[in-house]
Design a binder for these strands. Structure first.
Lengths: 154, 154
DNA sequence: AGTATATATTTGCATATTGCAAATAAATAG
DNA sequence: CTATTTATTTGCAATATGCAAATATATACT
């Protein structure tokens, strides 16, 4: 397989399966989108609805409704911001943290399994490469962020 | 950023944006799922509906309807298999190939942009790493393929 | 202060997507 | 030649989506 795009396409597909499987584990029935939302709230709590919807590239109205669902499921807490009366900030409930942790455990266990098939050196190389990729994508203003999508649309 | 899962989560998210933006380009309005379908048919034409739906991890009934839509859009052709009267094999129409090519061009152009921020050596390292990752994921029977998802479900 | 404008979030609505179970149709086994 | 398996489609109910409009609060201006 020497085609660059093909390599990435296949990799992304595989990680899609990984994500999808990890989020429907452990009794809870979380959709893929919901697991991404939980992850981001876990990573950076107390962000506003707008901020997180932009970070994840989800339409704000869609996101708002997803949050309503997650609040009903008692996984997410919506608190009014003290700075700005229009804003709500999001955090995980105890139950939400448990679910996020379960997903995280699954993911880590799968990642371990994948890396167990490499030498220590190969593993280091791969990790280094992912960092390089992330750094380059962060630099690019043409791709890989929802902001750039908006810019190009206009 | 030293957390392994976090690195991958962010990378996957970025590639998600990349994919999403690439498929809504050039006049056509293709959904993300549809672009993955077009890609797979382009990569391996004349596969059956079942085969491709499994490859992509899409429920067969959902997939069947997506194909109906793509056929109506004149991007995909559904031909009865000569071997087996139950089977339909899929291929791209001329228009479908054009769309797939446009998406491919966009993707490649974005990838070039990302890699332009690295040295030639770094680029080689990253490409080598993606190959390693793909190979390891292919080996794993615990993750990264729709088949394993099924196995675990039962 | 008081009005106009900007921003954050939600809601209405029409459409699209999904998953499961059942229906259909063709192949294969006994 | 009937019973069983396999590939695909359809019915249906539940969810998810995107856009435009509504709501509520903040900020700017005079």
């Amino acid at each position: 397989m020497e085609n660059l795009r093909e390599m990435f396409q296949i990799m992304i597909r595989r990680f899609g399966f990984l994500d999808k499987y990890c989020c429907s584990t452990g009794g809870y029935n979380i959709s893929l989108v919901q697991s991404h939302i939980l992850y981001e709230i876990w990573r950076r709590p107390r962000q506003s609805i707008q901020t997180i919807s932009e970070t994840l590239g989800i339409e704000m109205s869609t996101f708002s409704r997803q949050i309503q669902t997650l609040v009903k499921m008692n996984l997410v807490k919506k608190s009014p911001s003290s700075d700005d009366g229009r804003v709500f900030v999001l955090s995980l409930t105890e139950e939400g943290k448990e679910v996020a942790d379960q997903i995280d455990d699954q993911m880590n266990s799968f990642l371990d399994d994948v890396f167990s098939r490499m030498s220590a050196f190969e593993k280091e190389t791969v990790i280094h490469s992912i960092k390089l990729l992330n750094a380059s994508m962060a630099q690019s203003d043409r791709c890989c962020s929802p902001v750039s999508c908006k810019q190009v649309k206009e």
